[in-house]
């Protein structure tokens, strides 16, 4: 076979992978839009599709303007944006550290933001954007601390994960303590910071989420090819021309930014970052990039999880409880699959 032949075949293969990726992304987008339509139309009462569209177009529809415009729309938008952030950040983190268990919520990155937010609300009695800013700053600070503590002439993924788990355990007990000290013990507000919730979502909260998706999301997508090459192992990736240290640092900064901003708005919604990447890898063809599908799946998880928590289950639950409960069967599934495949986690 001539070299020309080979390069033509490689090009053809690449085109087919990229076509399939586009198809997958479009399909997920369709699922997400269907979910959005469902959550906008159907709540305690049914709003006809035409009324929803008129509210979205800015008309004043008696009744629907309040339920759709004030209640359902902000909630859906915040859910989608936060889900995109969690899904993208989680998948990038798992890809970088090469373990489906190493997602930002497990290795302590969200815990820093949560602890700061609880401190600001309970101890300093702050409200509004100041809380978010502090949560982001402390999330970044926690990540830096984890990175520095894991540093010993270079950072190994294993050490980073374990240091993260240690820091996270400490911060969890701090969060629990501060919540118990709160003068007016409010379970709802507390749960937001323990498991995450989109209750009381407001449209202005979308601004920081959009900004962080714009900046950090772009960085991550730009690093996507490098991250994929690093799946082959550090040595091979370096041979392929990936600048390992730079890719690693950029990815970590972007992951932390995405997760910290989203946590500051909706709390650490359990397991969205943890579940999105593996689900995406499962439905994508091998070798296909998972970052965009993972982001879309994260958005769908939060949106539909919140809907299920509000209307489908007996009683009303914050979204973090629903997604957290989803994580347990996934863990068991992971065991079964690994046992059958004899692979490694």
């Amino acid at each position: 076979m001539s070299a020309l032949d080979l390069s033509a075949r490689v090009a053809r293969h690449r085109r087919s992978v990229s076509r399939r990726s586009t198809r997958l992304a479009l399909a997920l987008l369709a699922v997400l839009l269907a979910g959005l339509a469902l959550t906008l139309m159907l709540g305690q009462s049914l709003t006809p599709p035409l009324d929803v569209l008129r509210v979205l177009a800015g008309h004043d529809v008696p009744g629907a303007s309040f339920t759709v415009g004030r209640l359902r729309l902000p909630r859906a938008i915040i859910s989608i944006l936060a889900g995109l952030s969690f899904g993208l950040g989680g998948a990038a983190c798992q890809t970088l550290l090469r373990s489906p268990l190493a997602s930002p919520d497990i290795i302590g990155i969200s815990a820093g933001s949560s602890a700061a937010a609880v401190f600001a609300i309970v101890v300093l009695a702050w409200t509004g954007p100041a809380v978010s800013v502090l949560a982001v700053v402390c999330g970044l600070g926690t990540a830096c601390l984890i990175y520095l503590l894991a540093w010993r002439g270079g950072v190994a993924g294993t050490r980073l994960i374990l240091v993260g788990i240690g820091i996270s355990a400490m911060l969890q007990s701090v969060i629990a303590y501060m919540l118990l000290q709160a003068p007016e013990w409010s379970l709802q507000e507390a749960l937001r910071w323990l498991t995450g919730s989109v209750n009381g979502a407001r449209l202005p909260d979308a601004v920081p989420l959009l900004l962080s998706l714009g900046v950090f999301g772009t960085i991550l997508l730009a690093q996507g090819a490098n991250l994929q090459a690093m799946q082959l192992g550090d040595d091979k990736a370096a041979a392929l021309g990936v600048r390992l240290a730079r890719t690693r640092l950029l990815t970590i900064v972007a992951v932390v930014g995405l997760i910290a901003v989203a946590t500051a708005v909706v709390g650490p919604i359990a397991f969205v970052a943890f579940l999105s990447g593996p689900i995406a890898a499962r439905i994508a063809a091998p070798g296909q990039p998972v970052l965009i599908p993972a982001a879309l799946i994260g958005a769908a998880l939060v949106l539909l999880g919140d809907y299920a928590g509000q209307f489908l289950l007996p009683g009303r639950y914050p979204v973090g409880v629903v997604t957290g409960a989803l994580g347990a069967p996934y863990l068991i599934y992971l065991i079964v699959r690994m046992n059958r495949a004899g692979g490694t986690i």
Binding site: L101, T158, T195, V321, G324, L331
Partner: peptide, 30 residues
């Protein structure tokens, strides 16, 4: 998986299980 029960896998499994169990705990109490 490969390598049996390594400290890393045990710690990760424990952290993930804790999160799942706390979610169930909250779901029941709420």
């Amino acid at each position: 998986g490969r390598g049996g029960a390594t400290p890393l896998k045990l710690a990760l499994g424990g952290a993930a299980t804790s999160i799942a169990m706390s979610s169930f705990t909250v779901a029941i109490i709420l």
